[in-house]
């Protein structure tokens, strides 16, 4: 049985990732039910919904982060550029380089700012020389909007930065391996409004270079940064639409109740 919500509402951009009839179980408990959704290239897609609705679980299926959870089982088909990411032919390490992730709490490595960014490109063999690596680090930090603030102290520890800077460092770290998709799981929930605004501005700038999927509890944030919004409830995709439609004129009663603050 397919989900009732449209999988790709007026997506004009080519489809980057497509999920079909995805079910996720943690042991006996089903966390995601028949979710089908398309993620457009070069667009920002927001997943919203109450706690426990499955939005983070579903996000984590997009780069197989659930593989690390022993009891988790994923059914259905998820493709990246048409290629099944759960097929045995798929190299998971390579997949996670192509589909990067930024987490709720900034989690820089306990290493220098430079090393935080350089680590990924090094293990993926993206730099042939120290000079190459310097270029990658600078470009990544510039794209992450952090370069001007840290260029004179690249050898300082990444954990010495402020929370907002740490999160931008993590985004820079994700960018450094030249991903195609960036998944963000509540990237601003631990940040103050100014740091949040900087991340949102960064998401705006990154749009067009990457497909971005962001899970957020902050509906205003979804409204501000995304072109498309998907509303999850009790493990199902209730409604997926153009963000401005979802926030001014949602079709589903459950979406309306949630975004107008009437839920529960």
């Amino acid at each position: 049985m397919a989900s009732t919500a449209s999988t790709s509402p007026n997506i004009s951009a080519p489809i980057k990732m497509a999920a079909q009839d995805v079910n996720v179980f943690y042991g006996d408990k089903q966390a995601i039910r028949n979710v089908s959704i398309d993620v457009g290239m070069d667009e920002v897609t927001a997943f919203i919904g109450p706690s426990g609705c499955g939005k983070s679980t579903f996000l984590r299926t997009l780069n197989r982060m659930n593989d690390t959870v022993a009891s988790a089982r994923v059914e259905g088909r998820i493709t990246l550029d048409g290629e099944d990411i759960y097929s045995t032919a798929m190299d998971v390490v390579q997949l996670r380089a192509r589909v990067g992730m930024v987490f709720q709490k900034p989690n820089p490595f306990p290493k220098s700012i430079y090393e935080n960014v350089a680590y990924g490109p090094r293990i993926h063999g993206l730099a042939n020389s120290r000079a190459d690596m310097d270029v990658i680090v600078e470009q990544s930090l510039r794209r992450a909007g952090l370069w001007e603030e840290v260029k004179d102290r690249l050898q300082d520890s990444g954990t010495a930065l402020s929370g907002g800077q740490q999160q931008r460092l993590c985004i820079g770290r994700a960018i450094a391996v030249q991903p195609e998709v960036i998944l963000m799981d509540e990237p601003c929930s631990a940040l103050d409004p100014i740091a949040t605004a900087k991340i949102e501005e960064l998401i705006h700038e990154l749009r067009g270079k990457y497909a971005i999927v962001i899970v957020t509890h902050n509906m205003q944030q979804a409204a501000r940064v995304s072109q498309r919004t998907a509303f999850f409830h009790l493990g199902t995709l209730v409604e997926y639409g153009v963000t401005s439609d979802i926030f001014t004129n949602p079709r589903e009663e459950r979406t309306k109740d949630y975004i107008t603050g009437r839920y529960g």
Partner: peptide
């Protein structure tokens, strides 16, 4: 209150 949807309308 940042009203949304039918509230906003």
């Amino acid at each position: 209150r940042a009203p949304m949807a039918d509230d906003l309308r």
